[in-house]
């Protein structure tokens, strides 16, 4: 009787550990997500600034793009289109990240609940054991 209860307890504890590591992983993912998002938001801001400046330029201005170690002369219209495309891409990426973040948070919450329940069960078991 005592051995069965103790083995059950051990099982529960194993489960708990597994869940805890899962939760840890999730939290790491979320943190990473946050970081990436931050990076993208900064880039978005920068691109928007560039776009504003490019819009203000007149057509015969010389625009260069730094490609590796060299400056390549670019058409203004081309540069403009590139920046716009980039902004679009970043916005889409941010949206995607938002989606995944929500997903992750949901998962995290459910994991937390599961862990809480497990802990309660373990406590109940231990209490029962103490009584016995």
């Amino acid at each position: 009787m005592a051995s069965s209860s103790s083995s059950a307890l051990r099982e529960l504890q194993h489960e708990l550990e597994a869940k805890a590591s899962d939760l840890n992983k999730l939290q790491k993912d979320i943190a990473k997500n946050h970081q990436v998002r931050k990076k993208y938001t900064i880039q978005l801001g920068e691109n928007e600034l560039v776009l504003k400046e490019l819009d203000l330029l007149n057509e015969n201005a010389n625009v260069f793009k730094l490609m590796g170690p060299i400056l390549v002369k670019q058409d203004l219209a081309e540069a403009n289109a590139n920046v716009r495309k980039r902004i679009e891409y970043i916005s889409a990426e941010l949206k995607r990240l938002d989606g995944t973040l929500q997903d992750l948070e949901e998962k995290q919450n459910s994991k937390k609940d599961a862990i809480l329940k497990l802990q309660q069960r373990i406590q109940a078991l231990q209490a029962g054991k103490a009584k016995a």
């Binding site: 880039q43 920068e46 691109n47 560039v50 490019l54 010389n62 625009v63 260069f64 670019q74 920046v83």
Partner: peptide
């Protein structure tokens, strides 16, 4: 200007 774009 940012993002590797330069202008004269």
């Amino acid at each position: 200007l940012g993002e590797g774009y330069y202008v004269e």
